[in-house]
C-alpha cells in the first residue's frame, strides 16, 4: 500500500489544486505562456488538472518582439498540439500606441512587458493571470503569495498582501483588480528540470547545448544577434552554450555548456554554483532590489 508521495508528486498535486482553485474562483483567468520551461510545466499541470475538458482559460504571450525564432515556433506548435487558444499581445504594439517609449533603440524590453500585460488585462478584463514564477528565483519572490493581489494599477504592495494559510487560497477580487496565481511557487529550478525529465516534456531547442556566436562582455556571455551586435573591438567566438531561461534576447544570456539532453542538464544544475538569474538575466544584476522594484510596477 502506497503511503507517501515523492516530492514531484507532491508539488504536482499542489499545483493542480491551485490551478483548479483559479478555475473555481475566478471568472476570467488567463495563463501566461512564453514557451519557456516554467510555463511548459504549467501547461502539463493544466492538462492534468482539466483533461479531458478544455482549459478553462486561454493562453497569452506578451511578446517583446525580441525573440529567438525557435522559441516562437515551438510556442505555436505547442498551442496547436494542445488545441487551445493563444492570445499574443506585443510590446511593439504598445510602442506604436505610444504607451511604451524606449529610452534608446535597442533598450531591453523586459520591463515594458508590464505595460503591455496591463493593457491586455484591461482589454480582456482578466481577473487572474496564472504565471510560472517561483519563490526560489529571487529574494523578493521568497515572500510572494501563491495568489498575489494586484490593485487596479497592477501594482504589487508587499505590505498589503493577503495572508495565506493552509491550502485555502483567497482569489476574490473587485472589478479592475487582478490576482497573479503562481502554481509552481514552491518549485526550485531543479524540481522543474526533474519534472521535465519525468514527464518527458519537449522544450525549445535553445535550452540544450548548441554552437552559437557569442561575445564576452563584463563577465557575461552575450549572444550575437541583430539586436545585440558586437561592439567595436569585441571578439566574436563560436562556442557550445545553452540557455537556462528564455526571454527577451537583449537580456537573456546563455551559459557555456555541453549538456545536450535533460539528464545532463540536471547534473549540471546540481553542480552549478550560480543561480539561474545570476547567470542569465542581464537585467537583474543591476541592483539587489531590482526585482522588487519591477514587481511593484506590475511585473509578474
Amino acid at each position: 500500500m502506497q503511503n507517501e508521495l515523492s516530492h514531484l508528486d507532491w508539488l504536482e498535486a499542489e499545483a493542480i489544486h491551485i490551478m483548479r482553485e483559479v478555475a473555481g474562483q475566478c471568472s476570467n483567468p488567463v495563463l501566461l505562456f512564453s514557451g519557456g520551461k516554467d510555463s511548459l510545466c504549467l501547461l502539463r499541470i493544466a492538462e492534468k488538472a482539466f483533461r479531458p475538458g478544455k482549459f478553462p482559460f486561454p493562453l497569452m504571450h506578451i511578446d517583446t518582439g525580441h525573440n529567438y525564432q525557435e522559441v516562437i515556433d515551438f510556442r505555436d506548435k505547442k498551442v496547436t498540439e494542445l488545441n487551445e487558444r493563444l492570445i499574443v499581445r506585443s510590446v511593439e504594439d504598445s510602442m506604436a500606441r505610444g504607451t511604451v517609449k524606449l529610452n534608446y533603440e535597442l533598450e531591453p524590453r523586459n520591463k515594458y512587458q508590464s505595460i503591455t500585460l496591463l493593457e491586455a488585462i484591461d482589454e480582456f478584463k482578466f481577473d487572474c493571470c496564472i504565471g510560472g514564477a517561483r519563490r526560489d528565483e529571487e529574494k523578493a519572490r521568497a515572500k510572494e503569495r501563491i495568489m498575489s493581489f494586484r490593485d487596479s494599477f497592477g501594482q504589487w504592495d508587499p505590505k498589503n498582501q493577503r495572508p495565506e494559510l493552509w491550502d485555502l487560497y483567497n482569489a476574490m477580487t473587485h472589478k479592475g483588480e487582478n490576482i497573479r496565481a503562481f502554481p509552481i511557487s514552491n518549485w526550485t529550478e531543479m524540481d522543474v528540470w526533474q519534472y521535465i525529465e519525468r514527464e518527458q516534456l519537449e522544450l525549445p531547442s535553445i535550452y540544450f547545448a548548441h554552437k552559437r556566436d557569442i561575445i564576452r562582455r563584463d563577465g557575461a556571455i552575450v549572444p550575437v544577434t541583430d539586436v545585440t551586435p558586437p561592439k567595436d573591438g569585441e571578439i566574436v567566438e563560436n562556442i557550445m552554450v545553452r540557455f537556462r531561461t528564455v526571454g527577451d534576447i537583449t537580456c537573456t544570456a546563455p551559459v557555456e555548456s555541453h549538456a545536450d539532453d535533460v539528464q545532463k542538464i540536471i547534473i549540471e544544475t546540481a553542480e552549478s554554483r550560480i543561480s539561474e538569474r545570476g547567470a542569465t538575466r542581464l537585467d537583474d544584476q543591476m541592483s539587489e532590489a531590482s526585482m522588487e522594484q519591477r514587481k511593484k510596477e506590475g511585473y509578474f
Binding site: 502506497q2 515523492s6 507532491w10
Partner: peptide, 8 residues
C-alpha cells in the same frame, strides 16, 4: 511513483 524521496 518513480522516486522514493519525500517532502517536509
Amino acid at each position: 511513483m518513480d522516486k522514493t524521496d519525500s517532502l517536509l
